[in-house]
């Protein structure tokens, strides 16, 4: 056991899976000698060579489509999209192809592939290096969507994703790549895709979050805890398929829900959580369901004060927790 960063845990998962299974290979832009623009694949080209770590043409559609074809022909590709913002040329291949092939062939073809993409703002990335895309893709049956919030989960969930027989969109909080650290065991372990995780027990209200926002929610919960507000924190981890039981069980306990996400508020992931709580948790509801999310503008603006205005962070989250606790 040693402390590692989020990106080190992700690299370790890929390294171990490449060593464990010769069917696994990586493709994407700059993943080879360069080791990826964020260094997620650093050292892997030297270790596994050009037939396992394949620099792709600068063309996202085919990074995914070639992965789909390779997956149908018996391999397990890990396709890296350099920034989640650039995944949209591959939307048709992900949504109309990867996600639908198992269903449309009556289960005779499977697409065991992972699409990794760094997402999220707060890094001075402006409109096109900051986007959160999880709501769009969580809407798609047949696709699994996973967002780890800490290094332990990142390694275990990525290993599960690589071994999964379905296409998995694995979103990584780029802001947290080196900021979020945690204990990561050496060697093989997995964290299952599906179950959410209650990362902090509390009684006054439940906060639902994932990825970078979960990291900030931990800080905010600590802060308001000093004021006597007891926050229960649910790390959703897998956005599709969603662990509804854990979502509802926590709500039954606290009766108050705050959902935090940095994607645009309107029809964001929190809207679905709110709808589930309203549908199936109405009898336990003690307060209006709250969402704290990014504003409904076309992107995270670049200039520092504008970015701060856009991004939810520990202070805004703590304020929302206080408001909900006081209701």
């Amino acid at each position: 056991m040693s402390e590692k960063t989020l990106i080190e845990a992700i690299r370790e998962a890929m390294d171990e899976e490449l060593a464990r299974n010769s069917e696994v290979f990586i493709t994407g832009e700059d993943v080879g000698p360069r080791g990826g623009v964020f260094r997620a694949t650093l050292g892997l080209f030297a270790k596994y060579g050009p037939t396992r770590i394949i620099d792709s043409p600068l063309a996202e559609l085919s990074i995914v489509a070639v992965g789909i074809g390779a997956a149908m022909n018996g391999l397990r590709p890990i396709c890296e999209i350099q920034f989640a913002d650039f995944i949209q040329p591959a939307y048709n291949q992900i949504v109309n192809e990867a996600a639908r092939i198992y269903y449309r062939t009556g289960g005779t073809f499977t697409v065991p592939m992972v699409i990794r993409a760094p997402y999220g703002g707060g890094i001075g990335g402006g409109l096109y290096h900051s986007q959160s895309i999880e709501a769009t893709y969580s809407h798609v049956p047949g696709l699994k969507v996973v967002i780890p919030s800490n290094p332990y989960d990142a390694k275990g969930l990525l290993k599960s994703a690589i071994r999964d027989n379905n296409p998995v969109l694995f979103l990584e909080a780029k802001k947290g790549y080196r900021l979020i650290k945690g204990e990561v065991p050496e060697g093989d372990y997995t964290v299952p895709i599906g179950p959410a995780n209650v990362t902090r027990e509390g009684t006054d209200l439940t906060v639902y979050a994932y990825g970078m926002m979960h990291f900030y929610c931990q800080q905010a919960a600590e802060e308001v805890g000093k004021e006597g507000i007891s926050v229960e924190l649910v790390d959703l981890r897998t956005l599709n398929p969603l662990d509804k039981d854990t979502v509802l069980n926590s709500f039954k306990k606290t009766g108050k829900a705050l959902i935090v996400y940095e994607d645009n508020r309107f029809l964001g992931y929190g809207a679905e959580i709110a709808a589930i709580l309203a549908d199936e948790g109405f009898n336990y509801m003690d307060a209006p369901i709250m969402r704290l999310a990014g504003p409904d503008v076309p992107g995270v603006p670049y200039s520092h004060p504008l970015q701060d205005w856009f991004m939810p962070g520990p202070k805004k989250i703590a304020d929302a927790m206080r408001k909900l606790a006081a209701y």
């Binding site: 074809g69 997956a71 149908m72 022909n73 109309n96």
Partner: peptide, 25 residues
């Protein structure tokens, strides 16, 4: 025989992936 889709040409880069896998294997 792989699966036909209605959006046209999606099978072509998939075929490149099938061929790439064949070569890698």
């Amino acid at each position: 025989i792989y699966s036909v889709s209605s959006p046209v040409a999606t099978q072509v880069p998939q075929a490149a992936g099938v061929a790439l896998a064949e070569k890698l294997k």
